[in-house]
Design a protein around this nucleic acid. Structure first.
Length: 301
DNA sequence: CAGTCCTCCTGTCGGC
DNA sequence: TGCCGACAGGAGGACT
């Protein structure tokens, strides 16, 4: 779920639900996710009002009234579920176990992976569920944000400071495959395995193309690279648009990918027909850096 | 430094 | 049905 479009979809939902709310209580059902929670995180969050929800790369940044920032990364399997006061009352939160929430029927897995629970002043509850625990939660002063270890080395946001010229500058002399470069968050942020495959397919570029061959000798982007940068933005935009349309019934902010799945042209379509107009190729799966890449060898050169 | 692997963790799915 | 291996949307860190 969590590439840029999914994180942006979650951001919008959290913004609508959280901004203006005071956090009355935070329950942490374990001491860590991928990294240990910072000491006192639950206490420091308690009593704060949410003043904004931002996104940087695939990180959610929640601004609090005391000048602190709550950072949340969804990893591979993290999701937030928003629970209304009515549902909260029906599920009787005071019966709760230490390692298991009472919200299992809403969050899945019998509540066994509901690691963080946020209770708000309007009576609603938000639950963070993450079976694989590759997610991250952190809390720090806003002044520290530019030097935060997880944020410091991030590359440009695709819609803000990124274009073919900048891409070419960062790819000069890079011999690794273009698919690997797209996944490198120092090159551009927000692109993950699905949208890297999709953007390369839309662009007609083979995922194994050495990155530097998309840059001219004078350092300018080739036509192919210009196309690729356009298609990265286009596919991310299209996915955000579809995610956004599901936001009206945002009661369950589950990051399930179902909504964009219908639009995949190559991802997870091994042995299926290439859907590009006029191409009769067959989708193949290869492995790059231990991760699956899907491509049409006929129209991606 | 760049590039390549491995790793964290749990759930799910397909093949036998 | 059960068991077992492969694989899953991320990305830091340890290697060569």
């Amino acid at each position: 779920m969590p590439e840029l479009p999914e994180v942006e979809t979650v951001r919008t939902g959290l913004e609508q639900a959280w901004v203006g709310q005071r956090i009355d209580r935070v329950i942490l059902r374990r001491k860590d996710l991928r990294f240990p929670f910072p000491s006192g995180m639950a206490d420091n969050l308690t009593g704060q009002t949410v003043v904004g929800v931002r996104r940087r790369a695939k990180y959610l940044l929640v601004d609090l009234s005391n000048g602190q920032v709550f950072l949340s990364h969804l990893g591979m399997s993290g999701r937030y579920t928003l629970i209304t006061p009515d549902e909260v009352a029906r599920l009787n939160p005071n019966r709760l176990g230490v390692r298991q929430s009472v919200y299992g029927e809403l969050t899945g897995f019998d509540g066994r992976h509901d690691h963080m629970e946020f209770r708000f002043s309007d009576g609603s509850v938000s639950v963070y569920t993450d079976p694989r625990r590759f997610g991250i939660a952190d809390l720090f002063e806003r002044a520290e944000e530019p030097i935060h270890a997880l944020l410091e080395h991030l590359g440009p946001e695709p819609f803000e400071d990124w274009n073919a010229t900048i891409a070419a500058e960062r790819m000069r002399g890079k011999r690794s495959a273009i698919k690997i470069t797209l996944l490198d968050q120092r090159f551009v942020v927000g692109v993950g395995n699905i949208y890297a495959c999709e953007a390369l397919h839309r662009s007609g570029i083979s995922p194994t193309t050495p990155s530097n061959t998309l840059v001219r000798k004078n350092g300018k982007p080739t036509k192919k690279l210009e196309r690729l940068v356009e298609e990265v933005k286009a596919v991310l935009e299209a996915a955000i648009a579809v995610g956004g349309s599901t936001l009206n019934d945002f009661a369950a902010v589950d990051g399930t990918l179902g909504y964009f799945g219908h639009h995949f042209q190559v991802y997870d379509r091994e042995d299926g027909p290439c859907l590009k107009e006029g191409c009769n190729g067959t989708i193949e799966r290869i492995v790059q850096s231990n991760r699956s890449t899907f491509l049409c060898p006929r129209c991606q050169k």
